[in-house]
Structures are given as structure tokens and as C-alpha cells.
């Protein structure tokens, strides 16, 4: 029978990353005895948050050297925890910090790794479902080799409910950080291109397509008006901004389209696949935003002038055939009036 380790770092404040409880749900699906491995500056709060998770043991690597997300120290800590746990399956949330080290840890353990995991099943041995080709093909597969490190995509599982219970005893592993790294983490930096428009916690993702820069009813492109409308919605609805590739590419080519837009906003094939409860696509006509870009958006609506848009059809819940400029003008006015 497989034994499983839920492996996660702590947040900067010592708490548990949101995605870790989702990964716990996946770890439970393995069906075997569960251990927890935590690393960070201090694991007390995170361990407490997992009290009642049903873990047989909680292991930790702790100390200031393990505070910052960094390959050398994180990979050493994660490997030590996995080794000490003796687990055959290691489940971790796909945070940027775990994604940085998961494959390296698997290599150090002499095991295997799979990323973009969305489902774990234990019928007849552990099998996983994962994405290939950038969320366009999914496969269910098994591996013989162990340990098997699984990086679970955020949003794939609901956060596990952890029954209140006594904090388990945390076993702290002694691990020296000497010689593990030549990297110093200096801090965080927000992009310098004007307003921060990426808000992972927003309820609404607003996806802007290249139609925003095309000619409008007036016969001319109206980039300033488009910019005001988009920013207006982001502010009034507290929405996060996604963009089609063609729109950010225009911005990247020296055509100053929208001051606030960078490649970080891009959703779809070469961009991100954000997760929000709702998504509204405007002026998008193409595969990427509709098919790949909002695969993890629960409720989806689109505003588009083309009723035959084969990409919104079957992909959105509602397609409004209307002029997005006119609609968004009114939406912004209504939202402003509400406040």
C-alpha cells in the first residue's frame, strides 16, 4: 500500500498556503497513511492549521534559512522531509514555491514527478489525471516507480475540511543550510507598468481581446476610450484583468496600447490559466481565451459582435451579441451608481 506525504512550505506569515488544503484533499484520495511535511521560518501556525488532518506524523524543517522561497534550501528541506517520512507518494500544492523544486526533489529521491495533476484515484493502485499540451489534453496514468511526487494544480480539489483536534507533535528535522545555496532573496517587486491589474482573489476575471483596439463604430480605433472602460470596470468591480495573446503582443511591439497591460496579463496557451468564480470575455474571438484561458472559470459570459463566434459557443454560458464599448460604458455607470 502507498503511504502519502503532504508536503508544503509555509507562507511568509507562517500560515498555511490556501492551496495546501486543496492538496490535502488530493493526498487523502491516495488512501494510505498520511504524513505531513512542512518547511519555512516557523511552522507552528501551519501545523496548527493542519491539526485534525488525520496525519500520523508531522515533520518539519524550520529556521530562518528556510524562510525565503529559494531552490537550494527548499529542495534540501523538501527532500529531507520526504526521505524522513518514508512516503511512497508525495503530494504538494502547485504554488510557485513548490513548483520551483518538485522535479528536483523527485530526482534527489530517485523517484518520479508529475505536474498539473487534477485528480488522484486509488482504485487498483494510485492513478492520476493530469494535463498535457497546456490544458488541452488530459490523461489518466499510473507509474510503477516510487517515490512519486505529485504537484496538484490549485483549484482542482476543494480545500479539505480539517476537523478541530489536538495539534500533533511536530518532529523537527535537523538540517544545516550551509552550502545549500548561493542565492539571496531580496524581496518582492510589483510590475512597473502602471496599475496592478492582476488580482488572484478577485471574484471576476475580465478578459480583453484584440477587438478593443480595432476600429469602432466611429470608423477609428479608440484606444483611450477602451483604456478608460477597461480600467473603469477593473476598479468598480474589483476584477482581475486577463488578455488575449494578440492584445498583449500589440502592447509588446512598441504600439503603446494600454499602459497597464503586460505579458503577465495574458491568458491561454502561452499565458496563465487563472481561477476565478466568474469570467467575462469581451472582444475576444479566438481559441486561446475561450478554450484554454478560462478553463478554470466557473461561470463564463462573453460580449462579442459575432453571433457565430464558434469559440464562445459551447464555451461560455451566455454570449451577448453586442458592442462591448456600449455595454461596458453602461456597466461601469451602473456599478458606479451602486457604490
Amino acid at each position: 500500500m502507498d503511504t502519502v506525504l503532504l508536503l508544503t512550505h509555509t507562507e511568509a506569515d507562517g500560515g498555511l498556503p490556501r492551496a495546501a488544503l486543496e492538496a490535502l484533499s488530493a493526498a487523502r484520495a491516495v488512501g494510505g497513511p498520511l504524513a505531513v511535511g512542512l518547511f519555512g521560518a516557523s511552522v507552528e501556525r501551519a501545523a496548527a492549521a493542519l491539526a485534525g488532518a488525520g496525519a500520523t506524523k508531522v515533520l518539519a524543517v524550520e529556521g530562518p534559512a528556510f524562510d525565503d522561497p529559494r531552490y537550494g534550501t527548499d529542495a534540501a528541506a523538501a527532500t529531507a522531509l520526504a526521505k524522513a517520512s518514508g512516503a511512497t507518494v508525495v503530494v504538494a500544492p502547485a504554488t510557485s514555491r513548490m513548483a520551483r523544486v518538485a522535479a528536483g526533489v523527485a530526482q534527489r529521491l530517485g523517484g518520479r514527478v508529475d505536474t498539473h495533476v487534477t485528480q488522484v484515484a486509488s482504485d487498483g493502485g494510485v492513478a492520476i489525471t493530469r494535463w498535457f499540451y497546456k490544458q488541452r489534453i488530459e490523461a489518466k496514468l499510473r507509474r510503477e516507480e516510487r517515490p512519486w511526487v505529485l504537484l496538484v494544480d490549485p483549484g482542482a480539489y476543494p480545500a479539505a475540511t480539517v476537523e478541530g483536534g489536538a495539534s500533533p507533535v511536530v518532529e523537527r528535522l535537523a538540517l544545516s543550510a550551509d552550502g545549500l545555496t548561493r542565492t539571496k532573496v531580496l524581496g518582492l517587486r510589483a510590475p512597473s507598468s502602471g496599475e496592478q491589474t492582476i488580482r488572484p482573489d478577485a471574484k471576476l476575471l475580465f478578459v480583453a481581446g484584440a477587438g478593443w483596439t480595432k476600429k469602432q463604430a466611429s470608423g477609428k480605433p479608440e484606444p483611450e476610450r477602451a483604456e478608460q472602460l477597461i480600467l473603469g470596470l477593473l476598479r468598480s468591480a474589483g476584477a482581475s484583468l486577463g488578455s488575449s495573446k494578440s492584445l498583449v503582443d500589440q502592447a509588446g511591439e512598441g504600439q503603446k496600447v494600454f499602459e497597464f497591460m503586460t505579458h503577465l496579463n495574458q491568458v491561454g496557451q502561452t499565458g496563465s490559466t487563472p481561477r476565478h468564480p466568474k469570467g467575462l470575455a469581451t472582444c475576444c474571438h479566438g481559441e486561446e481565451p475561450h478554450v484554454v484561458g478560462w478553463r478554470f472559470i466557473r461561470e463564463r459570459r462573453a460580449v462579442n459582435l459575432d453571433a457565430g463566434c464558434g469559440w464562445a459557443r459551447g464555451k461560455a454560458d451566455v454570449l451577448y451579441v453586442a458592442d462591448a464599448f456600449a455595454v461596458m460604458e453602461k456597466v461601469n455607470a451602473l456599478l458606479a451608481a451602486k457604490r
Binding site: 522561497p69 531580496l186 524581496g187 518582492l188 517587486r189 510589483a190 488572484p200
Partner: peptide, 8 residues
């Protein structure tokens, strides 16, 4: 996460 960069 959050559209930010870590500087190292």
C-alpha cells in the same frame, strides 16, 4: 503569485 516578481 499575485502578478508580482520575487527578486533574488
Amino acid at each position: 503569485e499575485g502578478g508580482r516578481h520575487q527578486v533574488s
